[in-house]
Design a binder for these strands. Sequence first.
DNA 1: TAGATTGTTAATCGATTAACAATC
DNA 2: TAGATTGTTAATCGATTAACAATC
Lengths: 208, 208
Amino acid sequence: MKGVPAPTVKRLVLYYHYLEELIRNEREQIISSVELGKGVGVSAAQVRKDLSYFGSLGCKGVGYQVDILRKQLGKIIGFNQRWPVVLIGAGNLGRALVYYEKFRELGLEIVEIFDCDLNKIGNKVATIPVRSNKEMEELVRQKGIKIAVIAVPAEEAQQVAELLVRAGIQAIWNFAPVHLKLRKDIVVIAEDLSSGIGCLIFNLKNII
Amino acid sequence: MKGVPAPTVKRLVLYYHYLEELIRNEREQIISSVELGKGVGVSAAQVRKDLSYFGSLGCKGVGYQVDILRKQLGKIIGFNQRWPVVLIGAGNLGRALVYYEKFRELGLEIVEIFDCDLNKIGNKVATIPVRSNKEMEELVRQKGIKIAVIAVPAEEAQQVAELLVRAGIQAIWNFAPVHLKLRKDIVVIAEDLSSGIGCLIFNLKNII
DNA sequence: TAGATTGTTAATCGATTAACAATC
DNA sequence: TAGATTGTTAATCGATTAACAATC
């Protein structure tokens, strides 16, 4: 699965959601690249190209079978497995993520929460106790957890990330607006909300 | 400001944050494109190219003056103004956004919250009362608000968006994992967290 | 003057789009 | 068979990188 462009992976998720919605609403059994493209705001050629990275998922002259394609995309992306996850940072954002339903539906399950704030340690978020960062390394290693979510302030993110990598974490979903300097083989997804704010304001300013 | 690539705008925000951090830590007064690039994980050529869209912000043979560049970027992006914002959806994600400090620091201020859930209407989030969606159109129009944040379930997003546009909203920050079909002149920033999850899992699966 | 670094142009790279043969 | 639609190749487009003249 090397050689798949990053934008393609993002769109696979959009296709997946759209197909899910079709299934929920019991719409058509078959969908064409034109319809799927319209549904997610992408050209039909783009849809076909994206899907073609993973083999022949459709049927020439017919289209794609909705339920099968959904299942295949789930498998391709990895939504079909359960991934235990640690969350670092039990602030507002971190707590919201714990309660975020979609998270679990897609296979990510927060199983441990860590924070360095003594006022938060010992509290529970939903059913999960907030533990001290000092316990993190041992627990992550012991449970063999591979994925971490960083929801700490920008100043702490790099330090926390290094600790996570030392503990054996291989993929990080980073909500702090900083570039993490880590080993090349660590997967880092930057989910910086302020870049979204920036694009929003910039574009608005320039149409008004 | 037309012709600026979208990836460039995202990076401007990174530069802005990095410069802020330098200022907070009272580091150097001057920074080169090489250093700035290293700081945010981008090539020096990329930094210079990005900045060059907005004129000559540096000094040949010297570099960029940190505090001045920060201020200029703030102005270019639009972080120097205050933008009143409405939030639709007072669920976990919506409430977290209300408490999200960065938000206000960058100029976005949530001034109204709407929801269609009778159990939520009338409650307060921080100091802001949750109102019925039915009051939205009038209040948005009356206050002349231009920016909305959609934090409702996927099924409701399109409908809410149409209502917002009717009320005069010009830019939407959309957290629902759906493509909004709206007039071309409406700015829509898709902040779909599940696409982040997808990229994370996909990439992890393919290195293991 | 010598060294450093910008701003910009040209070259490269990669992603998107268009077109069409294959085939249901 | 005629119509529809995929999968794929080639053409286009746009963004990134490399190179270098300008200049502090």
